[in-house]
Design a protein around this nucleic acid. Sequence first.
DNA 1: ATACTTGCAAATGATTTGCCAGTGT
DNA 2: ACACTGGCAAATCATTTGCAAGTAT
Lengths: 132, 132
Amino acid sequence: MTAAALLNTIRANGLRVSTARRCVLDSLLAAEQPLTAEEIAGSGDIASVYRNLETLEEIGIVRHVHLGHGPGRYVLKMRSGGWATCDRCGRSTLLNPEALQRIRAVVMDTAGFDAGFGHFPIVGTCTDCTQA
Amino acid sequence: MTAAALLNTIRANGLRVSTARRCVLDSLLAAEQPLTAEEIAGSGDIASVYRNLETLEEIGIVRHVHLGHGPGRYVLKMRSGGWATCDRCGRSTLLNPEALQRIRAVVMDTAGFDAGFGHFPIVGTCTDCTQA
DNA sequence: ATACTTGCAAATGATTTGCCAGTGT
DNA sequence: ACACTGGCAAATCATTTGCAAGTAT
């Protein structure tokens, strides 16, 4: 999945590739971590950023996550997955696919829930912080 | 743990049992589910409710949870635990202790995280909604 | 008596909406 | 051209803070 493919998805949904829309995508493509709307907007118009994020989420390009307190954050869906956040150091990381699968299986088995941890993370204390 | 024991905890922490504080506790004692600050306040002063909830959380009586979008919710800690919320029907339930233990164990084993699901729930589709 | 608390108002932070001018197709 | 979008201002929702008056101990 490339940047060009994302633009095609936008057009395929009957939407336009506007400058503001591209800026949002470029921010997300350049980011290592999920970003807040404010971080994406920079000095630009934040209302447009929120509107575009909502639109991009509707067509399945963007994912909205809440990794802790504070504002919501946004990531490209292709770079998202199951999240884990440390309640001490605050770091958020993606669960590796095997770990996610095993956790999902137990949740399904014990609670009957088909869970993904793609919106709220697993919150707990990470190994580093537990040892410290 | 009784209602009277909660009042003792308040006094034991050098705090006063005021009318507003009692009202917050009474709301939480009467509730079946976590409540929003607005629900707790009713027609009363919501700023005092927020302040009291924060105080009660600090002394370990109350727990703050985010079960989905919308405002935060508050429960008595003695009635809280690991939460699961269905992303279709929106219902939130407490995980039974055995399920919670097994889930915590895999999370520790696969991701190295000591997680409790006491603040953010496990979000997924519940059995009823999956079948429907 | 003296802190701790309240209640009101106002401030703050995050997000949404109305509206009209601007622009991609 | 024509509908989709952007940008600005204002509204809304959740929560916090300042402060003078009230009250539990």
